[in-house]
Simulated assay, not measured.
Amino acid sequence: MNETAARRGPQWAMVIDLQKCIGCDTCTVSCKAENRTPPGVTYNVVLEMELGEYPNVGHVNVPRPCMQCDNPPCVAVCPVKATYKREDGIVVIDHDRCIGCRYCIAACPYGARYFDFGESYADEMQGADEVQAPEFGVDRGPRRPGKAPVGTVRKCTFCLHRLQRGEEPACVETCTGDARFFGDLSDPHSVVARLAASPRAFRLKEELGTHPRVIYLR
């Protein structure tokens, strides 16, 4: 690792091996449980794709968190600078600054952002609104209308609050097929750096120049 990279600190990235993903949706469930996301807000989804033509048809599962782009379109369009990229590479949203205009949702080419309309699981689960998971380290208390993140945009942050405790993102920790890898991309000896350099590696919609921090293996 060079001196400049050492000063900047870790550059977080995720690698997802599509050959190992079994489409179990454990990442989706664990993410919702960890981040206490309301109905209609799902930071981790698994897209299903069919490849080829009958009778030679294949199936692939493509998990899609926020790409944490190095050139994020969502940051460029935010009129109040509520969305910004941290030095460690994670794109976050300041819910106290966000005005809910949703320009960033329209700008995201990956469909990885959601608006919190204030919907709730209270009818299905007792006490659902009493505990609000911290958004990048800030405990916002019980959910209620007029209090962020209700009325603002939400997205995956690589479970930043877990990283601050020295833990992996919930989706990585719970992946049944061990398809997800997380670490410091600036460290050439890290697992993610070695996998990102593999000939199997690719990024979604590379032609857009967004430079995602989520890398896939074919």
Rank of each mutant, 00 (worst) to 15 (best):
N2M: 12
A5P: 01
A6K: 15
A6D: 07
R8D: 12
G9T: 04
Q11G: 09
V15C: 12
D17I: 08
Q19L: 05
K20N: 14
C21E: 09
G23L: 02
C24V: 09
T26W: 06
V29H: 08
S30H: 06
C31K: 06
K32D: 11
N35L: 12
R36S: 12
T37N: 15
T37A: 11
P39F: 09
Y43F: 15
V45P: 00
L47D: 15
E50C: 04
G52V: 09
V57Y: 06
V57A: 10
N61M: 10
P63K: 10
P63H: 10
P65Q: 10
C66M: 08
Q68S: 03
C69W: 03
D70L: 13
P72K: 00
C78G: 10
C78K: 07
P79K: 03
P79H: 06
T83I: 15
K85Q: 15
I93M: 05
R97I: 14
G100I: 08
C104Y: 03
A106L: 13
P109Y: 06
G111Y: 12
A112F: 03
R113M: 15
Y114D: 04
Y114E: 12
G118D: 04
E119N: 06
Q126C: 04
A128W: 14
A128R: 10
E130I: 09
Q132C: 12
G137H: 05
V138T: 14
D139H: 13
R140A: 04
P145N: 09
P145M: 08
G146Y: 11
G146S: 11
P149Q: 10
G151W: 04
G151Q: 14
V153I: 14
R154N: 10
L160I: 01
R162S: 10
L163S: 02
E167N: 10
E173Y: 06
G177F: 01
A179Y: 13
F181W: 07
G183F: 01
P188C: 08
S190T: 07
S190L: 06
S190Q: 05
V192K: 08
V192A: 07
L195D: 00
P199R: 10
A201F: 05
A201R: 03
F202P: 11
R203L: 01
E206T: 12
E206F: 05
E206N: 13
E206M: 05
E207N: 02
